[in-house]
Design a binder for these strands. Structure first.
Length: 103
DNA sequence: CAACTGACGATAG
DNA sequence: CCTATCGCCAGTT
């Protein structure tokens, strides 16, 4: 079996409601690995498809998409906008409106 | 098995 | 505002 951390991360991500977003750090913290944000990203990268996870609802702590242009950035933004999430001029998401906290 | 990589984050300057 | 550096450790090679 994969680590408890991995299982927890997948569980949390699968629970993110449409129209909301959360961050790598928050997920990591709830999976008992406060400083494991990078692993959350890695898990998403390798397991989002097989676990049918809403990977696009996870952004970094600035409310911005971490992907690079031409490597998923536009695709992710498009999916978020399609769910009603708006970006400001700096292409950042307003956490006061869209942040989802697992619990 | 060892080394390397990296959708991140906090901190320091 | 910015860059640099360290910590964390699952995947990949």
């Amino acid at each position: 079996m994969k680590s408890p951390f991995t299982a927890k991360v997948i569980e949390i991500i699968a629970a993110i409601p449409a129209g909301k977003v959360t961050t790598y750090g928050i997920i990591a913290a709830h999976a008992n690995n406060k400083r494991g944000a990078r692993q959350v990203a890695m898990i998403l990268h390798s397991s989002s498809a097989k676990h049918d996870l809403p990977w696009h609802r996870v952004v970094n702590r600035n409310g911005q998409i971490s992907l690079k242009r031409g490597h998923g950035y536009e695709r992710q933004m498009k999916m978020l906008v399609a769910e009603g999430i708006l970006f400001d001029e700096g292409q950042r998401i307003d956490f006061s409106k869209y942040l989802w906290w697992p619990r």
